[in-house]
Design a protein around this nucleic acid. Structure first.
Length: 581
DNA sequence: GTTATAGGCGCG
DNA sequence: AAAGCGCGCCTATAAC
C-alpha cells in the first residue's frame, strides 16, 4: 500500500491504532483504499487539521469522544464523521437491514458507550501499543475500524431503504460531534447567581455542615405537626407511618397524593421535600463538582436512550430544574439564542402519517389550538392531554376518554400509533421514520406470551401476559413518535452546527476565552435538550444566529419529510440568560 | 464494607 | 388531578 501525502482525493479517512501508534487510511467514495499514512506524535494534529481544511473528508473512527476531545482541545473542528460504534448499533438492530455483511456477528462492536470523559480517561493518542484492550473497550485498531466500516457500508447498501438509513447514520454521527463540542464549550454558568438562588430558597448555607436555615425551619414545622420531635422525614416508610399516626391516610408519600390531603403537616412537608430536592440534586455540592471556570460541562450520551434520544451521564444535564436557568449567563458582550420547538412530537406524527388534517391543525404556532379549531375537543387543555394520551397509550382518566375523539378527527395519525401499539403487543418490531428499530421482546416476555396460550395456563399467567403485552404496546406506540422526533432534532442540530461554523469569526477583543480555543470567536451550541437548543453568541451576531436556528428547523423538516406541508415553529428569544418567560 | 433496588422527583 | 412514554440522580434500605 503506497504511503500518501495528499488526502485531496479521499472521501473517507479512517483513523485507528497500529503497532507503532496511530495511522490513517484514505478511502475514495467507493470505499477503495487509496493509501495509508502513519501519524507521528509530532505531526498528527497538524496533519489532521490540514486534511480537514483542504479536503474536509468524513473522518471514520471507532468512538467520537475518544478521538475528537483531543482535537477540540487543540482547536481543531471537523465538519463530518462516521462513528462506528453508534452506526453499528443502528445497523445491527434495524429491521431495514438484511444482514448479508455479518454485522450482527461482529459482537466486539456491541460494547456500551465508552466511559468516561469526566474522569479524564486517557485520550486515544496517549494510548501506547502495548496497552491491552480490556473486554469493555471497543476495538480501536485501524484494521478493526476498516473491517467494521466495510461491513457497515455493505449492510447499508443492501438495506431496504438505504437512503433513509444513511441519513440516520450521518445524523447520528453529527450528533456525536455536537455532543463532544457541547462538552468542550460548556454552558456558561454564573456560580454567584446559582449561590444567590440557593441562599434565597434554602437559606444561608451553614459553615459547619448540616442543613440550611429554611430547611431546618420547615423540618421543625413538619415535626411539630406530626407531634413527634424526632420524626424522620427522609425515610419514606418512617414518614408514611408518622403520617398515618396523625390521621393522614395516604398510600405513598409522593407529592401528588399528599397534595390531596387537608392537614397542617401537608404544606410544610411539600415545601420541605421541594427544598431538599434542590439541595441534594443541584445544591452547593453539585455546583462545586460540575461548574468550573464559569462553565457547566455535562456529559452527553448520544443515542443513549433506546428511542435515539440522548441521555446524560453525570451532571444531570437533562434534568436541570427550571428555577436554576437564571444562573445560565452569557459572557460579557455575548448573548444566548434560546429556541425550542412547539409541540414537536405531534407535528412529527402528522408528517409521518401524512395526516393533512393534523398538519392543518398544526399550521399556526399552537397545534393544540388547531386541534380545538378542528372540532376534536373543546378546550386547549383537553387537546393537550388527549394528544399526549394518544402518543403514550392512555386508557383511563380524562386522557383515555378523550383519545377516541382524536381518532375521529385525525384518523391517519391515530392509525399510525395504534398500529405501532398493535405490532408491539403482538411481539413485532417497529421502526422510526429513518429506520431506528425498537428492540425485539425479551425472551422472558415471549415465554410469558406463549405460556399464556397453553391449555394449562392459569388465570394469573394470562393476566400477566396481557399486562406485559399492553406494556410493550405502549412502548412501541411511543417509540415511533419519540424516536422520529429525536431524528428531527438531530437533523436540526447537524444543520445548525454547520451554519454556525460557516459564520465569520468576530474580532479577538470580543472573544469568550473560557469556552476554549475552538469556540472563542464564533457562535457555538451551548446546550441541547430533546427539542431545545441554546446558542452562545457574540451579541453582534445574535440576530444572524436566530435566523440560522429558524432556517435549520425548516431544513430539518424538509430533510426528513420532503415537501409535506408542515411547520416546525420555534419559541425563540435572544437574552443574556436562559430564563424562560 | 459494597452493590442493588425502590421510592421519589427533576427534565422532555 | 394523573395517567400514558422516555430518562438520571438522590436517599434510604435490603441484600450480599
Amino acid at each position: 500500500m503506497p504511503a500518501v501525502d495528499s488526502a485531496d482525493a479521499a472521501t473517507w479517512v479512517v483513523l485507528g491504532r497500529t503497532e507503532d501508534g496511530v495511522a490513517a487510511a484514505l478511502l475514495d467514495a467507493e470505499g477503495v483504499e487509496l493509501g495509508r499514512r502513519a501519524l507521528t506524535a509530532n505531526g498528527r494534529l497538524e496533519w489532521i487539521a490540514r486534511v480537514e481544511a483542504d479536503a474536509a473528508p468524513r473522518w471514520v473512527w471507532h468512538d467520537t469522544p475518544a478521538w475528537y476531545a483531543e482535537l477540540l482541545a487543540a482547536g481543531i473542528r471537523v465538519a463530518r464523521c462516521h462513528d462506528l460504534r453508534l452506526c453499528h448499533a443502528i445497523l445491527r438492530d434495524s429491521s431495514l437491514v438484511h444482514d448479508d455483511a455479518g454485522l450482527r456477528a461482529a459482537r466486539q462492536w456491541d460494547a456500551a458507550a465508552l466511559v468516561d470523559a469526566v474522569a479524564g480517561a486517557p485520550a486515544l493518542f496517549e494510548i501506547e501499543a502495548d496497552t491491552a484492550a480490556g473486554p469493555t473497550t471497543l476495538p480501536d485498531r485501524l484494521e478493526d475500524a476498516l473491517a467494521e466500516f466495510a461491513r457497515q457500508r455493505r449492510a447499508a447498501a443492501a438495506a431496504s431503504e438505504p437512503g433513509r438509513l444513511r441519513l440516520l447514520l450521518a445524523a447520528e454521527s453529527a450528533g456525536a460531534l455536537v455532543a463532544a463540542e457541547l462538552r468542550a464549550a460548556g454552558l456558561p454558568w454564573d456560580a454567584a447567581v446559582h449561590d444567590r438562588i440557593l441562599t434565597e430558597v434554602l437559606g444561608r448555607r451553614p459553615a459547619g455542615g448540616g442543613n440550611p436555615a429554611r430547611v431546618d425551619e420547615l423540618a421543625a414545622r413538619v415535626r411539630d405537626a406530626l407531634g413527634d420531635p424526632s420524626a424522620s422525614l427522609d425515610s419514606q416508610p418512617k414518614l408514611l407511618r408518622s403520617l398515618h399516626r396523625v390521621g393522614v391516610l395516604v398510600e405513598s408519600t409522593s407529592k401528588w397524593e399528599l397534595a390531596e390531603q387537608r392537614h397542617p403537616v401537608i404544606a410544610p412537608l411539600l415545601e420541605y421535600k421541594q427544598l431538599m430536592r434542590l439541595l441534594t440534586a443541584n445544591g452547593w455540592t453539585w455546583l462545586s463538582e460540575w461548574v468550573h471556570d464559569g462553565r457547566f460541562r455535562p456529559v452527553y450520551v448520544p443515542g443513549g436512550v433506546v428511542t435515539g434520544r440522548w441521555a446524560s451521564s453525570g451532571g444531570g444535564a437533562l434534568q436541570l430544574p427550571r428555577r436554576l436557568r437564571e444562573a445560565v449567563r452569557a459572557d460579557p458582550g455575548w448573548l444566548f439564542v434560546v429556541a425550542d420547538v412547539a409541540q414537536l412530537e405531534p407535528r412529527v406524527l402528522a408528517a409521518m402519517s401524512r395526516d393533512t388534517a393534523l398538519a392543518d391543525a398544526a399550521r399556526g404556532r399552537d397545534l393544540y389550538a388547531g386541534v380545538v379549531a378542528a372540532g376534536a375537543v373543546t378546550t386547549r387543555s383537553e387537546a393537550k392531554i388527549a394528544m399526549l394520551g394518544a402518543m403514550y397509550g392512555a386508557t383511563t382518566g380524562d386522557s383515555g376518554r378523550l383519545v377516541p375523539r382524536l381518532r375521529r378527527t385525525f384518523p391517519r395519525a391515530m392509525a399510525l400509533v395504534d398500529e405501532a401499539a398493535r405490532t408491539g403487543e403482538d411481539g413485532g418490531v417497529v421502526r422510526t421514520w429513518l429506520g431506528r428499530t425498537a428492540p425485539a421482546p425479551s425472551l422472558q416476555w415471549s415465554a410469558a406470551q406463549s405460556q399464556a396460550t397453553e391449555a394449562q395456563a392459569s388465570q394469573a399467567d394470562e393476566t400477566r401476559a396481557r399486562r406485559w403485552a399492553r406494556d410493550r404496546g405502549r412502548f412501541t406506540r411511543n417509540f415511533v413518535v419519540q424516536g422520529t422526533a429525536a431524528e428531527w432534532a438531530l437533523a436540526w442540530l447537524a444543520d445548525l452546527r454547520t451554519r454556525l461554523a460557516d459564520m465569520a469569526p468576530v474580532g479577538a477583543q470580543d472573544a469568550a476565552p473560557r469556552s476554549g480555543p475552538a469556540f472563542a470567536t464564533r457562535p457555538h451550541l451551548a446546550f441541547f435538550l430533546h427539542d431545545e437548543v441554546i446558542v452562545h453568541t457574540p451579541a453582534a451576531r445574535a440576530e444572524e444566529v436566530a435566523e440560522a436556528v429558524r432556517a435549520s428547523a425548516a431544513a430539518a423538516g424538509r430533510l426528513l419529510f420532503g415537501d409535506f406541508p408542515l411547520d416546525f415553529p420555534l419559541d425563540l428569544r435572544i437574552a443574556p440568560t436562559a430564563l424562560k418567560e
